[in-house]
Design a protein around this nucleic acid. Structure first.
Lengths: 193, 193
DNA sequence: AATACGTGATTGAACGTTCATTCACTCATT
DNA sequence: AATGAGTGAATGAACGTTCAATCACGTATT
């Protein structure tokens, strides 16, 4: 008998859900196992330790997000349209999979996120950088380091998602205007004649 | 004898430091007490529970940040200059007090941040909203809901700080261009003739 | 085709540790 | 003498992890 890859994913998804609901605090192995319909001990056939499990979960989520975002891009459209597509794709992905957003957010600000982890392959970061590089080189964006543009755009985007997720109460009165934010961001990065 | 307010602050600062270093995981009451030079039991003279302590810490940090940011604003300057001042003041405050930024970040994405907490008084949010309202009403910013502008600006700002803090390795190559971000943000929100 | 064997996944009770919290006590101040 | 802040050992619950036992399956032997 071999390790069952779908069971591994089951465990990861279970941990993801618990972390979304209760944070890192609230995902004891006992619960992760229960929700994944396996015994506590079985988690250790798939992962060396709980920490290893969390780190693999990070890789798993990062990869899933990058895949979904990149495959929805249509390079035949003009760059401005692709920018707004990107914006909408990320926001709707996170609305669809709130556990992804919640986990990435908690992970990023946690001590799990060491320098070593940051140096790992980051498919989403790489894809975004290439995307904005194209915009700069074709003269549609300001002549800036694509990495900087990435930071600024992803920053506003993540923050918007964070605000709408965590600060529901606060943004209720402003909710109908949130769609104006991508336009502001575009105005900030586009080449100004 | 009365409760010693400076000892309360000592405990809060000790927890703040431990959370910055090790996350919520890594700040057991035993350590908090040790670093604050009090006995573990004493923490319970000042706080009902650990959770209460964390919640008070949030109020404490929020208030400190709002105080420092608002008092550095000079309403006599023109609005654009005040915007860049604000940007610099926040980034340098967080560079000076990394524990503030780290705590706020971890708290915001944690389950501590319930709806009830969000509805509490938020002095920084209020101050920012008033600031941007002024910019809109004097015609220097786009005619948008000041709350939206707040979200967008604070979003980019926090993300920039997050990136430079957590993703040191990644941004090294882009570090010298990070100062261009506030200009992009300004271009996004300023009134375009 | 039937049986026995080996392999490795799976189980969940048990273990040692860590943690938040309690409480009987001390001691400085009034 | 009374008060209440301060102490830190004690408590019990919860946690990550281990492990001996069990189980399900593929392979070899008859």
């Amino acid at each position: 008998m071999e390790q069952n890859p779908s069971k591994k994913v089951q465990i990861l998804e279970s941990a993801l859900e618990l972390i979304k609901e209760n944070g890192f605090h609230g995902c004891p192995i006992s619960q992760v196992a229960k929700q994944a319909s396996v015994a506590a001990g079985s988690v250790y056939t798939y992962f060396e330790s709980k920490d290893e499990m969390i780190l693999e979960l990070y890789t798993y989520v990062k990869t899933e997000v990058a895949k979904k975002i990149s495959e929805k891009d249509d390079p035949k459209k003009n760059f401005e349209a692709r920018f707004f597509d990107l914006w909408n794709n990320v926001t709707s992905l996170y609305r669809e999979k709130p556990a992804f957003q919640s986990f990435l957010d908690q992970f990023s600000s946690s001590p799990y996120n060491t320098e070593a982890v940051q140096l790992e392959c980051d498919p989403l970061g790489q894809w975004l950088e290439a995307f904005f590089k194209e915009g700069v080189e074709s003269g549609q964006l300001k002549a800036l380091n694509p990495k900087i543009i990435s930071i600024m755009v992803l920053g506003s985007l993540i923050s918007l998602v964070r605000f709408t997720t965590y600060f529901k109460a606060k943004t209720a009165s402003a909710a109908q205007d949130l769609h104006l934010i991508p336009q502001m961001v575009w105005d900030g990065i586009k080449f100004q004649s």
